[in-house]
């Protein structure tokens, strides 16, 4: 039993020693015209050099952001009230050296861009600004039970070369106070 304990401890220490992966940062929000707008930033989204290589290979690469507004529940699962998905797809044209970026919100194209450098692309793909999450009319005013959570699903991977899995950031939360 002691041996097992030490193995677990060593495993946990070794895991914690690895550099952290991509994560969501700087979640901010504001209310306007009974809507909530959310902004955030993806840190270390391009830590994996494979992503840059994949973009340069002219394949379309998509970063998907899931944004939710949820209500905390005691002794129960939190209730999701608002949800939206932002997809940012980049496709590089190696003839023109331009990066065509298409931004979707809930599968609808909301914007297209053509960028000429990878730095612009990384910034564009990592930044989500003022996304309209939805109407806040159903939210109870002046309460601290709500929060916004965001996760980014970056690319498809294979865990242990065997199991298909999405590389994501995991949910990042920020408490909000309704006006």
């Amino acid at each position: 039993m002691k041996k097992l304990f030490f193995v677990v401890i060593i495993f946990l220490l070794s895991v914690s020693a690895f550099p952290k992966g991509p994560e969501i940062e700087d979640i901010s929000y504001f209310f306007e015209k009974q809507h909530i707008f959310v902004s955030f930033f993806l840190k270390e989204g391009f830590l994996n050099k494979d992503i840059v290589e994949a973009i340069d290979s002219t394949k379309p690469i998509t970063f998907r952001y899931e944004i939710e507004l949820a209500k905390r529940k005691t002794l129960w699962i939190d209730k999701t009230i608002l949800r939206t998905t932002i997809k940012k797809t980049v496709q590089y044209d190696n003839l023109t050296h331009q990066y065509e970026i298409t931004i979707f919100q809930d599968e609808k194209v909301i914007e297209k861009k053509s960028l000429t450098s990878i730095d612009e692309v990384t910034t564009e793909l990592s930044m989500v600004k003022e996304v309209n999450l939805g109407s806040t009319t159903d939210l109870s005013p002046g309460e601290n039970v709500y929060y916004v959570r965001v996760q980014a699903i970056l690319f498809k991977g294979f865990f242990l070369l065997l199991f298909p899995n999405d590389v994501d950031t995991g949910w990042k939360e920020k408490n909000i106070k309704t006006p």
């Binding site: 494979d50 290589e53 994949a54 340069d56 290979s57 002219t58 394949k59 190696n94």
Partner: peptide, 9 residues
């Protein structure tokens, strides 16, 4: 080049 890069990727 695209084919090559995709294959490489």
């Amino acid at each position: 080049q695209k084919l090559y890069l995709q294959a490489k990727s």
